[in-house]
Each structure stands twice: as structure tokens, then as C-alpha cells.
Write a protein that binds this DNA or RNA. Structure first.
Lengths: 182, 182
DNA sequence: CTTTCCATCAATCAGATGATTGAATGGTAC
DNA sequence: GTACCATTCAATCATCTGATTGATGGAAAG
């Protein structure tokens, strides 16, 4: 793997493990097996490297938003997709949580997070409208608000820590959500 | 105000402003107008001071969970209470978000956060059952799961950043939530 | 008045941390 | 072979950061 990618990947992993609070350039370089000066050769500042991580994480998440499956099942498929992603790439949600929190104090990151949020919400809103048209769910008076609500719920379920909890609980809660919508 | 309280209060404020990432003992002492050694006189370590902040924040939140209002309106009143709290004490939700994230790497904090979560969830679950009994809402098949879902939603709405967003959006989403439940 | 204890401060320490410097290494063009 | 460029490293810097030390002033106790 290219140095540049390897550094972003290592920073991504360490961010998931220790949060921004415990993210150290030395540790990132060490994980790649490289001198700190080499890290600074590719990324002049820690800040620039973090931007790289943001891009990597957001791109990764955005590509999973694309709807798939038979039309009437797409809402359900969307939930299933998120649940699967949480299982196969738990780091991604940890990093997204960290980025969301950091967005409070970093305008640039806030803008990126907001953008991904909006995309997510719009995708979901379109899915809801389509599902309603096909009678799969009740016609939501305000699909946009409902979609935003669902996004907030999924963020609460996956981006905030649930360690020490039975994973089946999350499953049950997701089913409760699907029941509410239908 | 007593030194000890003043230190916890300052740490709480600074935690809300800068997050764990930017929390410095020097700044805390300076905000109280006191020498660092004085801070360490009352709290031997930064960790101990943080425990103080955790207790302060959680107590503050727990006291707002107590149900109030006429029986059939309590669920709605609960939402209104949370919304009001978010308006009058935005710091509290920022701090709770920080604590939730830190809980991922700090077992002691994780246990406390989980405990408050469970309390919240149980209060809400009882309210839902009671509201159903009075016919105010449809009988929820699984009140516990529904309550946990609602808690996750409220956390997603209030503990994760929404800066740069129209506050009316949150209002609309809360109404959408009430509509779903009823 | 002297002793004792509490609270506070200035000064300082040791280790961590982001960043820089100058030299070595190896490959490519001429 | 020599000049040039990209890449990497060991060593070092300046600053930050949590924590400690020894001294000082004042109130309470005897």
C-alpha cells in the first residue's frame, strides 16, 4: 500500500481505538513502521492528515448509502445495510461519532458531516416516498421530517457507544423502528 | 461558592466548550482564578476532577427525568421537558455526549452512563405503558424496546451536534416522533 | 505568644507532543 | 560518473501538560 494511504488508514484505525483525545502522530507513524519525519513529509501537519481521514471515512460511508434491492423492500434493505455495516465495520461508526463531536469545534469538519447527513436524509426520504407510493408503508405526511428523524435514531443507535450491551437489543430496537414506520 | 464546587463547575463548562480533547487543568484553575497546585490540593489528579464532573452532570440530568404533569400527558410532557432542557442548558447535552463517547474507553464512566440510560429508558417505558392503558397511544407490543428506541432517538437528536441547523427542524422531528408513537 | 493546621502560591520537574533540520540512501536522467 | 530528485531517518527543538515541592500567610488551639 502507498505510504500516503497507509498513514490515513493507520490514523483512521487509531482514531477509532483512542478517539481524538488519544490520537498521536508518533503512534500513527509507528503503526505504519515509519519515522515521524516521513509522516510530516506527506502530511505537513496533523490537521492535514486528519482531513485525509475525514475524506476516507466519509467516502466509505457515502458509498454504502446507495439504494439496492427490490423497490418495495428498499427501506428495509437500507436498515439491513446499516446493521450489516455496523457489524462488519464497527470502526466506521466510531470514527463518524468522533467526527460528529469534533464538528462542534471545527467548521470544516462540521460542513462535511452536515453534507453527508443531508445526503443520507435525502436518500431515505426518497425511499420513504417510493415505499408509500407502493403501499409498503403508510403515507408519511412529511417524508423529510420522518427521514431526518430516522437518521437521528440510527445515529443514536450506532454512533453513540453501546458497548457492554447485548447486540440483540439493537436488533430488537431496529425492528421496533421498522414497526413504527410501517 | 466553595472552591471544590467552583472547580467542578469550571471543568464542566470547559468540557462543554472544548471537549475532552481540549480540557486542560491549567485552564480550569485559571477560570476559577486559582493556582494549579490549589486544584491538585482538592483533586489530586485530573481523573478525580473528571469524576466530579461526571457526578455533577449526571445528577443534573437525572433530576430532570422525574415525570410530571397529568397522567395521560406525561409522555408528551417528557418530550417537552427534554426540549426545554436542551434550550436552557445546552451544555448539559454537550457534556453528556462527551461522556458517552469517553465511555467507550473508560469502564467507570461507561457504567455510569449506562446506568443513567437504563433509568431513562425505564421511566419512559413506564410512561408508555400508562399512556397506553389510558388509551392516549396505541398499545405498544414491547414497551421496553420502544422506550429504548425513543431514548436512542433523543440522544441522536440532542447529544450529537446540530449546530448550523434551524432549531425548528428539531421541533418538527420531535413532532414527527410523537406522531409515530400515537 | 507560640504552635499547629489549612489553604494557597511561585517555581519547577519530567515526560509527552507536534514539528524541524540536516544528513544518508537509492533511483533516474544526461 | 555526475548531477538531481524523491524518500527516509536519527537527532533535536520548543512548547505543552499533569503533577510536585517548599515556602508563606493566616486562622484556630493551647
Amino acid at each position: 500500500m502507498e505510504r500516503q494511504e497507509a498513514l490515513v488508514q493507520a490514523a483512521y484505525d487509531l482514531l477509532a481505538e483512542r478517539g481524538f483525545e488519544g490520537l498521536r502522530t508518533r503512534d500513527i507513524a509507528a503503526r505504519v513502521g515509519v519515522n515521524i519525519a516521513t509522516l510530516h513529509y506527506y502530511y505537513p501537519t496533523k490537521e492535514k492528515l486528519i482531513r485525509g481521514v475525514v475524506g476516507y471515512a466519509m467516502e466509505r460511508f457515502r458509498t454504502t448509502l446507495q439504494p439496492a434491492g427490490s423497490p418495495g423492500e428498499q427501506v428495509r434493505a437500507h436498515f439491513a445495510g446499516i446493521r450489516r455495516l455496523a457489524r462488519t465495520e464497527p470502526k466506521l461508526f466510531v470514527v463518524m461519532g468522533e467526527l460528529a463531536m469534533r464538528g462542534r469545534r471545527d467548521r470544516a469538519i462540521a460542513a462535511i458531516v452536515r453534507d453527508v447527513d443531508n445526503t443520507w436524509q435525502k436518500v431515505l426520504s426518497a425511499l420513504l416516498r417510493q415505499a408509500a407510493k407502493e403501499g409498503a408503508i403508510a403515507n408519511p405526511a412529511k417524508a423529510d421530517d420522518l427521514a431526518a428523524l430516522i437518521v437521528a435514531t440510527l445515529k443514536g443507535l450506532f454512533m453513540l457507544p453501546t458497548e457492554g450491551r447485548d447486540p440483540k437489543e439493537v436488533d430488537r430496537q431496529l425492528r421496533a423502528l421498522e414497526r413504527l414506520i410501517a
